[in-house]
């Protein structure tokens, strides 16, 4: 898909040193854009903070209750945060014809997908890594576990794989803000279950072996859907 030398427009891709250069270029574009506009990380950060605070009031987590409800609260906050990030992934490309620019890029559509997907993954992950210590402080929990970081990374990657595809679809539909979560949540259910259960295991002090099947489930989800989404992205963007 990347090497179409017969098309002069695509000659660029044959000159680029490697297949990952376009991915990095798109990723870098999004990081640069974010550093100037600050429309993604800050609002999502504040929002997920708000979710955690609101949860604190509605469930009143007393110390005895904390380990039971904390994983759920954490993953509801992260899922909603991810949702907002996914909304932005392609809606920001709709402004000033960004999507047309992307589609005219002389690179394969799978590489465009990977670039956008990694950007989404990166931004949501940044928010989550900032939120983890905040969360730990508020709920008085030991969250500085490497296992937790791994869970967060695997789950967020899973969100980004299907989420980037759905985001690209939803921007071209009516009622796009409401359609994206309706598409995204049912598909992401296994990741949400796995992340919550693995977090519960970490907080209970279980060893890696006890919850490794949840990590495997998430890793499987990530691999399957990154492949399917990359292969089908050509159909999502269209001509």
């Amino acid at each position: 898909m990347t090497e179409q030398t017969d098309n002069p427009l695509r000659a660029y891709s044959t000159r680029t040193p490697s297949w990952w250069a376009p991915i990095l270029a798109i990723l870098w574009k999004d990081v640069l854009l974010e550093s100037r506009t600050r429309e993604m990380v800050m609002p999502i950060l504040v929002f997920s903070f708000l979710v955690i605070v609101v949860f604190n009031f509605v469930i009143d987590p007393k110390p005895a209750l904390v380990t039971a409800v904390a994983p759920g609260v954490l993953w509801v906050a992260f899922t909603f945060a991810g949702m907002l990030g996914l909304n932005r992934t392609f809606s920001m490309e709709m402004e000033h014809g960004g999507i047309e620019g992307l589609m005219m890029c002389p690179v394969g559509r799978d590489l465009i997908y990977l670039g956008k997907m990694l950007g989404t993954f990166f931004f949501i992950l940044v928010v989550e890594l900032i939120m983890l210590p905040v969360f730990a402080a508020i709920f008085n929990l030991p969250l500085f576990e490497p296992g937790l970081w791994l869970i967060t990374a695997l789950a967020t990657f899973g969100f980004a794989t299907v989420g980037a595809t759905f985001s690209a679809m939803a921007v071209n539909t009516r009622a796009r803000e409401i359609l994206l979560p309706i598409l995204f949540f049912p598909i992401a259910v296994p990741v949400i279950i796995a992340a919550t259960e693995a977090t519960r295991a970490v907080l209970a002090g279980d060893s890696l072996g006890d919850y490794s099947r949840w990590l495997q489930l998430m890793a499987g989800f990530d691999v399957i859907f990154v492949v399917i989404a990359a292969l089908t992205f050509d159909f999502v963007l269209g001509e």
């Binding site: 679809m169 539909t173 399917i228 989404a229 089908t232 159909f235 999502v236």
Partner: peptide
């Protein structure tokens, strides 16, 4: 096309 991609992913 959207439907087809959703059908496969689902």
């Amino acid at each position: 096309r959207y439907g087809a991609v959703m059908g496969i992913i689902g």
